[in-house]
Simulated scan of single mutants.
Amino acid sequence: MVATLPGQAWHPDVTVATVVALEGRLLLVEERIDGQLVLNQPAGHLEPGESLVEAAVRETLEETGWQVRLEAFVGSYQWTAPGGQQYLRFAFAGQALAHDPSRPLDEGIERAVWLAPAELRARTAQHRSPLVWRVAADWLGGQRHPLSLVQAL
């Protein structure tokens, strides 16, 4: 557990991720982190003034060029990175609607890729974090919750 100093606020990074499946394959991104090519779901940070749902749709478009419609909430995940940074990830399931191949992708994103679940599992060493497979495995196992569980007031 990471301790904070007296009077110091704890601020975990709040992130969103989207599982998108098409013809038996999952939409992922290959991105460069510290010079390493890693795999992740389309994911990113919640920005001020947006809902978790809006963030998931935005991040998917920015990182892959795919417009999606969210259909379910997969789950929430808490993870502490090896350096001590803590993350709260909210994962969603979405349907692919349209792709814009000419859209520039976010900085650091090399490309969007479609992988069969077995291919994703075989490349575990390339996952950006253990959250990548955990979210995919939960989705593959049928974990779906109504979007109404995620409220923005």
Rank of each mutant, 00 (worst) to 15 (best):
V2S: 06
L5C: 12
Q8F: 01
A9I: 04
D13T: 12
V14W: 03
T15R: 11
A17V: 04
T18E: 01
V20C: 06
A21S: 11
L22A: 13
L22P: 01
E23R: 09
G24N: 09
R25A: 06
L26E: 00
L27P: 10
L27H: 02
L27F: 03
V29L: 08
V29G: 03
V29R: 06
E30Y: 05
R32I: 14
I33V: 14
V38Y: 00
L39C: 14
N40H: 02
P42V: 04
L46S: 08
E47R: 15
G49F: 15
G49D: 14
E50W: 06
E50L: 07
V53C: 11
V53A: 11
V57G: 06
E62P: 07
E62H: 07
E63S: 13
E63F: 05
E63V: 05
T64W: 00
G65R: 10
W66M: 05
W66D: 08
R69P: 02
L70G: 13
L70C: 13
F73K: 08
F73H: 14
F73W: 15
G75R: 13
S76P: 02
S76D: 05
Y77H: 09
Q78R: 10
Q78C: 01
W79G: 05
T80N: 01
A81F: 10
P82G: 01
P82A: 00
G84D: 05
G84H: 14
Q85N: 11
Q85M: 07
Q85W: 09
Q86N: 07
Q86R: 15
Y87V: 14
L88T: 10
F90D: 01
F92R: 12
F92Y: 15
A93F: 03
G94E: 02
Q95D: 04
A96C: 08
L97N: 00
A98T: 12
A98C: 13
P101Y: 03
P101I: 05
S102I: 00
R103D: 03
R103G: 02
L105R: 15
L105G: 11
E110Y: 01
R111G: 06
R111E: 10
A112D: 01
L115D: 04
L115F: 15
L115S: 09
A116I: 03
A116E: 09
A116M: 05
L120T: 03
R121D: 03
A122P: 14
A122D: 15
R123P: 12
T124D: 03
Q126N: 08
H127Q: 11
S129D: 11
P130I: 04
R134D: 08
R134K: 15
R134M: 11
V135E: 09
V135T: 12
W139S: 07
G142F: 13
Q143N: 01
R144Y: 08
L147H: 14
S148G: 12
L149E: 13
L149K: 10
V150W: 01
V150Q: 02
A152R: 06
A152C: 08
L153H: 14
